[in-house]
Write a protein that binds this DNA or RNA. Structure first.
Lengths: 205, 205, 205, 205
DNA sequence: AATGAATGAGTGTTCATTCAT
DNA sequence: CATGAATGAACACTCATTCAT
């Protein structure tokens, strides 16, 4: 009777360790980039020995891929959350997007985000992961957008929805880079700049 | 009498060498990323010895900074060219922007561009360079935009112009990432998606 | 009353475990060599945990020494068997030697055999073990050989016997290396080659 | 005019360095075995830095293969020398073989020799190298033996020669192992033991 | 008695950088 | 000016060994 408990305890601990390491690796990668994040620094950050990492990950590259996959999963989860918000409130869309637009840096973790994108330029495996995740995100954004306009009494053809999703993603991703290049820009400027865009992308509230 | 000539000859040669090396370093960096571009591969690509590079650059980091600076200078030069185009034709704006929108990848060299942006996240020096260059680009884009609307008989307040420049830059930069995540997207989708945006940003032609 | 039984049961189990581990270590060593046979692979092969091995052996080196000692003991046992065969049949000598000559590989496990010999070159402890075992083997072979010739009605002086034992051992050991360097050699070639040698070493039958 | 000289100087130096490293690696391998001979110890023995080794050898494995190949080449060279000796003196055969038999250890470097043979058991590439080298050696030994008997006025059929070469090689190789197991054996014992064998293998002198 | 998570010293290898030539 | 041999401090990774459970 206590066997499964014991077993799951061990499993839980194992999972927790993996989590600790992955989290440390992520932190180091954000701070120093994938390459400069040495196994030694990851181990130190995670509070484990360097050798132990290899019980939980095949190689450093496997860790990087796991970080990337996790990041992609998180983005998808965020999008899913958007949808559920949408179901509860008809005004949610603008709120959420504004929040997103206001702090794209915090949400997308620009250093990581950009390095992943740069990596996708040279690593086929990363590119595939990025594209298939983005494909799923696009599908969900489209569904969400069509639902939002539907609710607003102004249906949207699928083609139209796809166009707006395209612009929406480009703008959000572009804001990440803007936040880096123009970090001291007036929040009002951002808000005002995006207003006409939002008016086009989302139903008025 | 021939001393200055010799000197300038020597200087020209020196400059040419620096150029060769920088160009090789850039090529290697685009192909493999800053880190994986080894001094040996750069030397080989430039057709010089590894040791010689250190006569022209203090360190590998100095080369990376030079690559970044050059990239930033090129972007600024591109914008300047926009302005001169604008002076010659009132329809230039749309043409140029469309061209830009259609091939942001080729123009901005995404791997390099994104790696620079990621680097700016962690390296203060890179960040400064990026920001000051962007500031100049913004000023020029604003001037160009105000001029374009002026010509179209529809003046634009500076604040308005700044907002549109903000959006314009965000979108263009966002398109770089889109090109990576959605490389097989229909060119028509891109064009159609951007049309309403352009209508807002630029005067009709 | 049941204490000794339990104790001996426990001892038997202990011995069995030691045996399992040693056997696994031997298998791994034959397959991959002493060095490449990792404790982890030995543990897996033995079906025990890595840590348990250290209850039965002080260190990996101790295991290697145990493997070597066991191999030496086996060789000695084989020789002893020769003698008992000899007692039963006057023709045994040729039979046995021929069998040995025909399949020295299978009998001596060349990978292990050669690695042990190589190790003896560098490890004093292994060298001692090898030499003292060989000394015993030589003594037994000599006794066996003298007995065989005696039976054949043609007595052999001890000095003569020692010379023939020397040649006999050298040839048998040399055949191990031949089997590696010339693995596809015709069995008839081997048999024919060795015939004159056997005629000299052993009494005709 | 001095260009080729300079060039060949550089090449000579390069070759000398390779030689230094290979020689150091060989020494370390003899002392500690292929595996335990670390790149660091090889570098120290060669009097160079660890990194430099990789300018001359692809990897440690490449060094090991080079050591093996060199050893095989040396053996073949020794055999060739036998032939030339044979041409000069009809009594050479016995002399040479006796010398070989008397000091097989020094000639064959048993630690190396045995480890190579053991390696051939597990490494296909090493096995191939060993076998093809042995094939060449066999051919030369056979030619040499037939020539020796021919000179002695007692021709030898090829099949017969092959048999004797087989025995000769087995015995010589066996003596390497004997030298390890029986290092303190009386030289007279060895000589006396081998006399009948030599009488069979080589023409009397 | 038995586990296997954890350690840490050691491995082969790479690479920016220097310097004798 | 130019070379490329040489360095040495990293790096990712392995594995015998220990120890809390």
């Amino acid at each position: 009777m206590n066997e499964p408990t014991q077993k799951s305890k061990a499993e839980a601990r194992c999972e927790a360790q993996r989590e600790r390491i992955l989290s440390a690796a992520r932190k180091c990668s954000i701070e120093s980039g994938f390459h400069a994040a040495s196994m030694a620094s990851i181990a130190e950050t995670a509070g484990v020995s360097a050798g132990l990492i290899y019980r939980y990950f095949e190689s450093k590259n496997a860790i990087i891929l796991a970080i990337i996959q996790r990041k992609l999963d998180e983005i998808q989860a965020d999008i899913r959350e958007l949808q559920s918000l949408n179901r509860r409130s008809s005004h949610a869309a603008h709120q959420v997007v504004r929040r997103l637009a206001a702090q794209p840096v915090a949400i997308l973790e620009p250093g990581l985000f950009l390095e992943i994108a740069a990596l996708a330029t040279r690593d086929q495996q990363v590119a595939e992961a990025l594209r298939s995740a983005d494909q799923r995100v696009r599908a969900e954004l489209r569904a969400w957008l069509m639902q939002a306009w539907e609710k607003a009494g102004c249906g949207l053809a699928e083609a139209q929805a796809l166009e707006r999703v395209f612009v929406m993603q480009a703008v959000i991703e572009g804001l990440v880079i803007r936040a880096i290049k123009q970090p001291d820009s007036d929040p009002d400027l951002v808000k005002d700049s995006l207003r006409p865009l939002l008016a086009y992308l989302l139903p008025v509230d």
